[in-house]
Design a protein around this nucleic acid. Structure first.
Lengths: 237, 237
DNA sequence: TTGAATAGTGGCATAGCGCCACTATTGTGT
DNA sequence: ACACAATAGTGGCGCTATGCCACTATTCAA
């Protein structure tokens, strides 16, 4: 038998295969609190329970795994995420009552502007939950564990990369930038150290505007257009 | 319908699902050259081509993804890896001619002692190939890309973590340790900087022995028993 | 005893974060 | 106009870990 005939006759339905899915922990700031996106499960198992957005790959529609992630989040919320990164893949016999299951876990960051523009409401059965309020909910599957892994990744990268900047609106002050890092890390940072770091990284540009306040207005910045991630030479905090 | 009935009737064979596999880039030093393990494919597609060890999850045998990796490498070589780490998961419609395919890529490190003890030979259709000789081979699937990703991860972590130490035999001199980092990074390192770093990390212990050479013998060290990975405060080189 | 070869150390320069006090700018109340 | 409150932004030194280079220490062999 040659290879083309083999491929013609190949039928995956004959094999015992795992369930393969993606799940996303989508972070965004609501005021000064880190929130993440949950969706109510519309089908069994765990029907009616809160869970991370995610689900099966649509072989006919998705070109790759990232496509699946984008499609799943968009279907639930209409949201276009500003940052997307793969965290880890968890696969074992126990995590899904339907059987052996593999999920590819993603982390995404969404700026508050985009979040408010989007339709997260009753109809979509989605909601933003503060990280601290998660314990009160019993998430479906092992999604508690998945959230833990994503949070750990976010916190870890906040120490040495520019990643948390994607949680900011399009323009922002340096103080707001510092605050975002502080919220993610859970510690206060030194103003001078933070500004020096960010300045030397050369990843921001001034808009020329200043934020109107009661007192001296702070200069507004935006991420340089091409910027995705900067790695600092040392950790902070 | 309640959930237990739903689960009883659930049959994954009815759905269009991707192929889900694992692949491993298993590194080891042969002399002073970084090599990786390849296995000749025994089945279609790419029958007879060289490929990374890996394959399908055995739902009846494997408890989780790591089990699959260990089983696959052991089946091909009898090798028990000293270090194992997940790199990234690649999934798309094009990488496998049988259809939509997801692979979870692992990196593993093997010390030269264990490698020599194990049966990597004609019968198993496996071989160790120098990284630089890879271009001459046309690896199956997208395994060139997978190797590239694993190498990038190894090089990157050599700059700030103790990971390359797992490429050493059970006991080793500080010079040998330095040499391993140099081989992985592809640059020379300063003797003093390297030793100071390793010393302050406190991850080694002296055996008390010295290596017998023609001249002054260097002290022998081993990894502290519980050690898996140390993160240095700054990057080297 | 001396030299070759490798093992291991002393000591100062440098880069980037920690820290604290200082100056600068703007709105408000008198 | 002027002083004050409040926030924005900077100067400058200390600390830590790496870069660098020269120096001392140990061992074997001639």
């Amino acid at each position: 038998m040659d290879e083309s005939r083999f491929l013609e006759q190949y039928d995956i339905h004959r094999f015992d295969v795992p369930l393969t899915t993606i799940d996303v922990v989508c972070f965004s700031l609501v005021g000064e609190t880190l929130h993440l996106l949950l969706a109510r499960r519309a089908h069994m198992p765990f029907h009616g329970a809160w869970a991370l957005p995610g689900g099966f790959i649509d072989l006919a529609v998705d070109g790759n795994l990232d496509d699946t992630v984008v499609r799943k989040v968009a279907a639930k919320t209409g949201i276009r995420m500003s940052y997307l990164e793969q965290v880890e893949t968890i696969g074992n016999a126990d995590r899904d009552p339907r059987g052996w299951s593999v999920t590819c876990l993603y982390l995404s960051l969404l700026d508050p502007q985009s979040r408010e523009d989007q339709q997260v409401d009753q109809k979509h059965e989605t909601r933003w939950v503060a990280l601290d309020d998660l314990d009160a909910l019993a998430l479906a599957f092992d999604h508690d564990l998945l959230v833990e892994k994503a949070v750990a990744r976010l916190r870890s990268k906040a120490r040495y990369s520019s990643l948390p900047l994607h949680l900011l609106a399009e323009t922002f002050t340096l103080q707001q930038a510092q605050r975002v890092f502080e919220l993610v890390l859970g510690t206060r940072l030194e103003k001078k150290s933070f500004r020096r770091r960010l300045g030397e990284a050369a990843i921001l540009e001034e808009t020329g505007e200043t934020l109107a306040t009661r007192t001296r207005g702070a200069a507004l910045y935006r991420l340089r257009p091409d910027h995705r991630e900067h790695l600092f030479p040392r950790t902070i905090g």
